[in-house]
Amino acid sequence: MDWAVIVSDAIRSGIGPVAAVYALAAIGLNLHFGYTGLLNFGQVAFMLVGAYGVAASVSTYGLPLWVGVLIGLGSSVVLALLLGLPTLRLRAEYLAIATIAAGEILRLFYRSSWAEPVTGGVFGLQRFAVEFYDVNPIPRDTYGIWLVRYTSLDLWALSVAWAMVLLTAGVVALLVHSPWGRVIRAIREDEDAVRSLGKSVYAYKMQSLVLGGAIGSMAGMMLAIQNQSVNPDSYDPVVTFFLYTIVVLGGAGRVLGPIVGAILFWAILTFFDSALREAIGAGYVSSEVISAPEVGAVRFALVGLGLMLLMIFRPQGLLGSRKEMLLDAR
């Protein structure tokens, strides 16, 4: 059992491009759930429209990449308005129902044969990220220290993705510490109180939904570009629940919560994956008990166990404040 491999796998995953993408999507979700109290169970839908905005624009219609980015952002705004207009005046649960349904409807729609001429259906789309990698300033090689190494392509993708994460986190930090942020945090606590003080709760909830959704769509674009392909089935509801896990793990309503959460989530997930494979390989775990193909499922069970322990011993997440959490119980 090679511990160096296990640890380096975990680190590579924790600071890799996928962790950055999840951090970005979780920042958007944190704005919804952690700050405004919106129960968005369809963050993956925003990632989907962002990813396909880029992929279909470039691959199907031959438009430049930056146009695709604008189309992706535009789609996420339209989606947020469609979801928000009928539900944000109602109680919180209605948004939850609408978003979880929208996520699945969109995935099924994008993979339908009817949409295949544009979205590629079940085959997805490829070859839309060429422009992105053409401007890669990093010479072709592998980079890194110790066993944690990335190809120049991955290094470029992860640098851009983490830069977006930091930039977005900075903007969110400015927002939530401004009077605007005070209003959305107040809405999380009690909508009627905010209404009685002359604020249009509906307008603020809509702004938060649009903004967090647009951040989610940027994450979707980055995921598509990093994979150099899109497929509707990678945008299934479980992604949203990973994002909730990340937000809760890091601490909901904390600017750095989603970033810390995403790094740890991917590091821990990969740690279990790698450790189990190594243990099976070294014969510590009999392949009768867990065979190599089952590792993928078992690691999620272990992550689930970890989350349960976290909820019991540190329900506020890693960066949350226990004092604040306990106030919630009233």
């Binding site: 401004s178 945090r185 009233r330």
Partner: peptide, 23 residues
């Protein structure tokens, strides 16, 4: 309907109308 996870001061400041920073 006090806003529990906002400070007392934040509760007060929230209520002022016509705040530019709320846009």
């Amino acid at each position: 309907k006090t806003l529990g996870r906002l400070s007392v001061l934040e509760n007060m400041k929230l209520a002022a109308t016509g705040q530019r920073g709320e846009r």
